[in-house]
Design a protein around this nucleic acid. Structure first.
Lengths: 181, 181
DNA sequence: CCTAAATATATCAAAATGATATATCTGTGT
DNA sequence: ACACAGATATATCATTTTGATATATTTAGG
């Protein structure tokens, strides 16, 4: 059996709630989802075409004037495929943190470089954490349906782990400054 | 300027300390590094050939009997390239957590499925956390050089964040069980 | 002495990434 | 009325990564 293309599931998950264009899908992925998954035009558009031939989604032309616009709709087969994936036990969870990679190899550099890289990371995380907290507050005032609960849980995952990262940053910086070479 | 191939930096980082074969490199990457970065034969071997033509590394044939074996050694240019990368401010840090993706789309499934996916995640994390703690204990008894300090910091990053994940799992499971549909 | 596991290199299809090309529509300031 | 920046929208491409497989040799255990 061919390996499952994850972008397909992201798209099906989004189309489960509403009809969207490829461009809309990209915007949704760039929102809260981007904290734990990415997508690009380079895989969204091919996936849309492919899933249409596999009858998991249907397209309808909703062009306005000269502006081309193709809106996609999930089929029953598409909903089935999504549910099957949700029920599979396998889930691949991966970190790809270049900051940690650089830190690991900092023996080839200096304490100063290592500290600098951690400070950059800290800055990145603080910015993202602020954003997540805004999402969280908005959700708390508007937890009206099941989907909001799942959304809320992913946001709190982000907040909790980012807060742990920041605590680690403080510890790590202290160690790098104290333990004289 | 061509985009930087990250696998090159991983290999240079490893070769900075010792000469290695492609197979050795794969084994190193599959160790502690695998918690924050991955590598496969499919990009290790091509990278080795490419970096050799770019004079960042040198190869020497160390075959034993009929067994082919090519050992690589970092050059001064290679060391320079590694240091340059360490000194670049840019670092791409990405999470790719299929568990969170499934949780986010659990509206298409059920509370039961969502809970099941979190329990699977919890199991995965607990196993990995145990391993990280072993690494940590070994390091604490053997913190003799600068490299061990950097290694130790990446390991504590893993431990701290995984512990935060587990706390989140407990909270999330409670919410999913309490908040009746 | 057999065999399973580890060592070792290499390649390939499939998927993801990141950038770019092309064209249209919308809102803002002048 | 007009220019023009920015948002909307689809599409493609080279590069990189992933995951699997092919091939062959050596080592360790029963």
């Amino acid at each position: 059996m061919a390996r499952e293309k994850k972008i397909d599931m992201v798209i099906l998950g989004l189309l489960f709630h509403e009809d969207l264009t490829g461009y809309d899908i990209k915007k949704r992925i760039d929102g809260a989802i981007s904290f734990f998954w990415k997508g690009s035009f380079g895989n969204i558009y091919p996936s849309l075409k492919d899933m249409q031939t596999r009858k998991l989604i249907q397209s309808s032309d909703t062009s306005v004037g000269g502006r081309e616009k193709i809106t996609y709709h999930i089929t029953e087969e598409g909903k089935e495929a999504l549910k099957e994936w949700l029920n599979e036990d396998l889930a691949i969870n991966e970190l790809r943190y270049e900051t940690l990679l650089k830190l690991f190899f900092s023996g080839a550099g200096s304490r100063k470089t290592a500290l600098h890289n951690i400070e950059n990371f800290e800055k990145q995380i603080k910015t993202d954490l602020e954003l997540l907290k805004v999402y969280c507050k908005n959700l708390e005032n508007n937890m009206k349906n099941e989907d909001h609960l799942y959304y809320y849980l992913t946001v709190t995952f982000g907040i909790d782990s980012y807060e742990a990262y920041l605590k680690w940053c403080t510890k790590a910086k202290k160690m790098l400054r104290l333990e004289a070479r």
